[in-house]
Amino acid sequence: MQSLTNRSKMVSDKKMTFLEKLYLPAIFGGMIITAKHLFRKNNTIKYPEEQRVFAPVYRGQHVLKRDEQGRENCTACGLCAVACPAEAITMVANERKKGEEHLYREEKYAEVYEINMLRCIFCGLCEEACPKEAIFLTDRIVKTDDNRPDFVYGKDRLVEDVNNRIDVSRRQLTGKRKEK
């Protein structure tokens, strides 16, 4: 067939030279290459003893953030559930009652908020969809388990602990929010 462009170049040379036909040069050459690696430092990360540093934007386990005063950010608008391609998020909204202002920042809050971690594909669309900066994916990895129902993470495992905050400030700054 005629050439379609003027950029083509034949790259596959199937003619062997006499030396190549003898097998041995390539074999010894190969053995020398592997032997060099014998003396090279190994490249293994001995997980779990050693851990690799994840990128700050790594999309791992979710967290539901609280604001500075310890109130939950989530207002149960449902955008994350709509944005989820795996349909892994379910929530039940409820009205904030009097006296609960210290718990929930907005007037509506998620009474039940569940993510099915086995369904979740960690695409990060929920984080993007959230208008309240309530849900973030973090650089923690989701634990493995032997019981399927345990993978439905409720608010007990998603909402961050007031005393043990999960820092997501670095990922907030990358593109989604500009520094002032």
Partner: peptide, 9 residues
């Protein structure tokens, strides 16, 4: 059976 259609818009 692990989802509830009402939530998915």
């Amino acid at each position: 059976e692990d989802k509830d259609d009402r939530f998915f818009g």
